[in-house]
């Protein structure tokens, strides 16, 4: 019994060196254990704060930390390698981030198009069963190329193709072009994202350019002389490309014609009218035929008008008298001529 009381005495003496673990507060603290945060909303004791600032604040901090630790001890604890561990709940306080939010990655041209049209990406299986090879073939990557090669051990020559053409080479070339195109598009997307200027697409390759692109190229090229194309002659049917002012040297987007006097403008306009009206008429067969038909019709109607006898009875003889039976010659079959026609 003596030993027990001694131990208790010792522990009581030891406890006197420490402060109490129970702290009284008028208003309970607000805790956010996830961030190990306790917020004390109680008022300061003004008198103590003035007289003994440091000690008062130290005491206050200790008390509040004690309260926080009390709360932490209430959480379920575990023992891991001789240490007592607590799992903290998720934090409630929202902390501002230190760095700005990263900007969303700019969409590629296709992504933008797909978004506009509402096209959604369909998830495809990585492996698909190939009936011909009788095995699972990956969609891309390892073993895909070999599978494709195995599949294409023979290529049928299309009916309309040149039989001497190498279909394998053709296929390889098509594939190469596809890869190149993809690469070009990838670079274009990067250029777009970084706002880099690249030469206009379409003027680069004359083999695949449209007439419009070529016209634009001609217009730009003609203006690209030291005197901005002032002394370049125009071809008879040549038209200037429109909408290329941005890339044409010396062209401003909105160019006004210089003001001229009204009379001068009129004479200029008259010249243009002359040139429009004096265009050499092409021989229009349809028109010629229509005119011919019209003329014939007019002639015929004139003739009819002249021929038509005046109305009224009189001794005028018909030019073509009504045919009468039994008169005139018979044409055609000879032989049985008499008797009425039986139907």
């Amino acid at each position: 019994m003596d030993v027990v009381s001694k131990v208790l005495m010792n522990s009581a003496l030891e406890a006197q060196n420490y402060k109490s673990i129970t702290v009284n507060k008028h208003i309970d603290l607000e805790y956010d254990l996830g961030t190990l945060l306790a917020v004390d909303t109680n008022d300061f004791d003004e008198k103590l704060l003035r007289s003994n600032t440091n000690d008062y604040l130290l005491d206050l901090a200790r008390d509040n930390v004690q309260l926080l630790l009390n709360r932490i001890w209430e959480l379920p604890t575990e023992r891991v390698d001789e240490a007592i561990v607590v799992k903290l709940p998720p934090p409630k306080t929202v902390l501002p981030r230190c760095k700005p939010v990263p900007k969303p990655r700019p969409l590629t041209k296709w992504q933008q198009f797909a978004k506009e049209k509402g096209i959604e990406k369909k998830k495809k299986d990585k492996l698909s069963w190939d009936e011909q090879l009788k095995k699972w073939v990956p969609l891309y990557g390892f073993k895909r190329a070999q599978a494709q090669k195995d599949k294409d051990w023979l290529i049928e020559v299309p009916g309309n193709a040149d039989p001497m053409e190498d279909q394998f080479a053709k296929k390889a070339q098509a594939k190469g072009e596809k890869v190149a195109k993809n690469e070009l598009q990838r670079l274009r997307n990067i250029a777009k994202a970084k706002n880099v200027k690249v030469p206009r697409f379409g003027l680069t390759n004359p083999d695949v350019s449209s007439a419009k692109d070529l016209q634009a190229a001609v217009t730009v090229a003609k203006a690209s002389t030291a005197s901005l194309g002032k002394f370049q002659d125009k071809l008879p049917q040549e038209k200037e490309a429109r909408g290329v002012a941005a890339i044409t040297p010396g062209a401003s987007r909105k160019r006004k014609l210089p003001p001229v006097s009204g009379t001068q403008e009129r004479s200029e306009n008259l010249n243009i009218v002359e040139s429009v009206l004096n265009k050499k008429p092409k021989i229009d067969i349809e028109k010629a035929v229509a005119r011919q038909i019209n003329q014939e019709q007019v002639e015929r109607s004139e003739e009819k008008k002249n021929e038509r006898p005046k109305a009224g009875r009189g001794g005028k003889k018909r030019s073509n008298p009504k045919p009468k039976s039994g008169k005139g010659q018979r044409k055609g079959k000879t032989g049985k001529t008499n008797g009425r026609k039986r139907r």
Binding site: K239, E240, K256, L257, E265, N269, I272, V273, S275, V276, L277
Partner: peptide
């Protein structure tokens, strides 16, 4: 209000001439 370019004047007169 601006003057018609020569090209456009021509197009206009061609249409009117029809």
């Amino acid at each position: 209000m601006k003057r018609l370019s020569e090209e456009r004047t021509k197009i206009l007169f061609e249409k009117l001439a029809k």
